[in-house]
Computed example of a mutant assay.
Amino acid sequence: MSGEKVALRGAKETLLITLCAKAGESRLPDSLLKDRFAADAVGRIDYDFVRLGIDRDMMIGVALRAHVIDGWTRDFIARHPEATVLHLGCGLDARVFRLEPPAGVRWFDVDYPDVIALRQRLYPARENCTLLGSSVIEPGWIEAVPRDRPAFVIAEGLLPYLPEEEVVILLERVMDHVPGGELAFDAYSHLGLSLIAWQPSVHSTGAVLHWALDDPRELMRKLPRLELVQELTGYGADGFDPRQVARMSLPARAAIQIFGWIPALSQMARLLRFRF
Rank of each mutant, 00 (worst) to 15 (best):
T205A: 07
H210F: 06
I262G: 06
I69H: 01
F259N: 13
G53S: 04
Y123V: 04
W198Q: 15
E4K: 04
G91N: 03
Q199K: 11
E25Y: 06
H210N: 12
F276S: 01
A38G: 08
V42D: 02
R56A: 12
R217T: 12
H80F: 09
P81Y: 08
A38R: 08
V110A: 06
D214Y: 02
L33E: 05
V178P: 04
L99A: 10
S194L: 09
R225T: 07
I137P: 13
S266K: 13
L228C: 10
R98Q: 03
L33V: 10
R149H: 03
D40I: 03
V202F: 12
P81D: 06
S31Y: 07
F259I: 00
A252I: 00
D35W: 05
G234A: 11
R98F: 05
L191Y: 11
L131N: 12
G140E: 12
L223E: 02
R253M: 02
W141R: 08
G133I: 00
A207R: 01
R253Y: 11
E13Y: 01
I60Q: 08
D55M: 07
A254K: 07
F259C: 14
D148G: 05
R74A: 14
A197F: 00
G24P: 12
S2K: 15
D55N: 14
F97N: 04
K12Y: 03
D70E: 11
R36Q: 13
L193K: 03
P216K: 04
E100L: 07
G104M: 07
V229T: 08
T73H: 07
R79W: 03
S189K: 01
I256A: 15
D40E: 15
H203V: 04
L265I: 05
V110C: 11
R217S: 15
M59D: 15
V136Y: 00
K12P: 07
E182D: 13
P160I: 05
G133Y: 04
L219R: 01
G10W: 04
G157D: 06
E127S: 14
D111W: 04
P160Q: 05
P163H: 12
G260Q: 09
F108L: 06
E227H: 15
E156Q: 08
G157T: 06
E82C: 11
L265Q: 06
A207S: 08
E218Q: 14
H87M: 03
V115L: 09
Y161T: 12
R44V: 11
V245L: 14
F276T: 00
